[in-house]
C-alpha cells in the first residue's frame, strides 16, 4: 500500500511538472486562435507565421548574441575566480567569494533596477545589447564559479607540480594539464550560462532599449490574444532545442569524464 501511495505521488508530481510543457506542442499544432479544449484540427500555420515575423527573428538574434557573449565572459571570469579560490589563499578570501556569489540569491528585480539607475543616471550610457550582456554576466558568473569550483577541486594539486617538475612553465602547465581536466566543467558552465541568459526576463526587460530579447518579445506578444498560438509554436521549438542541447552537453560531459578516468560526480543533470 505504501509503495503504491508513493507511486501515485510520483506520477502526480511528474504530471504537475511536465503537463503544462506538453500543452505547448498540443496548441502549437491546433487549428484555432483560441487556446482551449477541445482541439479543433491540425495545422502548421503558426510555425509559418513565426517564419514570417521579422521582429521575432531580430529578437532571437539579439538573445543568441547576448547569451553567447555572456556565457563566454561569465565562464572566463568563473575560471579565474574558481582557480583563485581553489589554489590560492588571499586576504578576505571568504568575504570576496561571498560577495561574488551574492547575485545568486539577490532578487533579480533589485539587480535590474539598480543596474538601470547605474547605466542611465550615473554612467549615462545608452541601453544596448551590451548593457544586457553586462547584467547577464553578473548573474551568470556565480553559476559558472559554482560549477568550475567543483571541477578545479577535483584536480590533484600534485598534477600541476608534476608538470612543472617536468619542465613546464606555469602557463604551459595550465594549458597542458589543468585546462584539459577542467574542460567538462567549462562546457557545463558555458551551457548553463547560455541557458540562463537566453531565458532571463526581468533584467533583460529593464536593460533592453529598442531591441528586445526573445523573452521580452514573447512577453510583448501576450497582449495580443491572436498571437498566442504562435507563442506556443515558438515555445515548442525552444523546448525541443533545450532538450537536445542538454542531451548533447551531458554526452560531452560524460565522454570527457570517461576519457579522464574520473568519477562521475553528477553535474547538473
Amino acid at each position: 500500500m505504501k509503495s503504491r501511495g508513493l507511486m501515485i505521488y510520483a506520477v502526480v508530481y511528474l504530471l504537475f511538472l511536465y503537463a503544462p510543457v506538453l500543452l505547448l506542442p498540443m496548441f502549437a499544432f491546433n487549428d484555432s486562435t483560441i487556446i482551449a479544449f477541445p482541439l479543433t484540427g491540425f495545422t502548421t500555420d503558426w510555425f509559418s507565421e513565426l517564419r514570417n515575423t521579422p521582429a521575432l527573428h531580430t529578437a532571437v538574434k539579439n538573445s543568441v548574441f547576448i547569451a553567447v557573449i555572456s556565457a563566454v565572459l561569465a565562464t572566463l571570469l568563473g575560471i579565474c575566480a574558481a582557480r583563485a579560490a581553489t589554489k590560492f589563499d588571499f586576504p578576505a578570501k571568504r568575504g570576496v567569494m561571498g560577495f561574488i556569489m551574492l547575485p545568486l540569491v539577490l532578487p533579480e528585480i533589485i539587480v535590474a533596477v539598480s543596474l538601470l539607475v547605474v547605466m542611465v543616471q550615473v554612467l549615462n550610457l545608452p541601453l544596448t545589447n551590451w548593457s544586457v550582456i553586462a547584467a547577464h554576466v553578473l548573474i551568470c558568473t556565480p553559476f559558472s564559479i559554482a560549477i568550475l569550483n567543483g571541477a578545479f577541486q577535483n584536480i590533484d594539486g600534485a598534477l600541476e607540480e608534476a608538470a612543472m617538475d617536468l619542465g613546464e612553465t606555469r602557463w604551459s602547465t595550465f594549458r597542458l594539464v589543468t585546462f584539459p581536466l577542467v574542460m567538462p566543467g567549462i562546457i557545463s558552465s558555458l551551457l548553463i550560462s547560455f541557458t540562463i541568459s537566453l531565458d532571463e526576463f526581468i533584467i533583460a526587460f529593464f536593460m533592453t532599449g529598442a531591441n528586445p530579447t526573445m523573452p521580452v518579445y514573447i512577453w510583448g506578444l501576450l497582449r495580443f490574444p491572436s498571437k498566442l498560438p504562435a507563442v506556443m509554436a515558438l515555445g515548442t521549438i525552444l523546448v525541443v532545442l533545450s532538450i537536445a542541447l542538454l542531451i548533447l552537453a551531458e554526452f560531452f560531459r560524460r565522454r570527457g569524464l570517461r576519457r579522464a578516468g574520473l568519477k562521475d560526480t553528477g553535474g547538473f543533470l
Binding site: L159, E161, L181, A260, G261
Partner: peptide, 12 residues
C-alpha cells in the same frame, strides 16, 4: 625530478 606520493599520473 620527483615521484609524487599520489604518483600524479596525468589522467587525460
Amino acid at each position: 625530478n620527483m615521484v609524487f606520493q599520489s604518483y600524479a599520473i596525468f589522467p587525460h
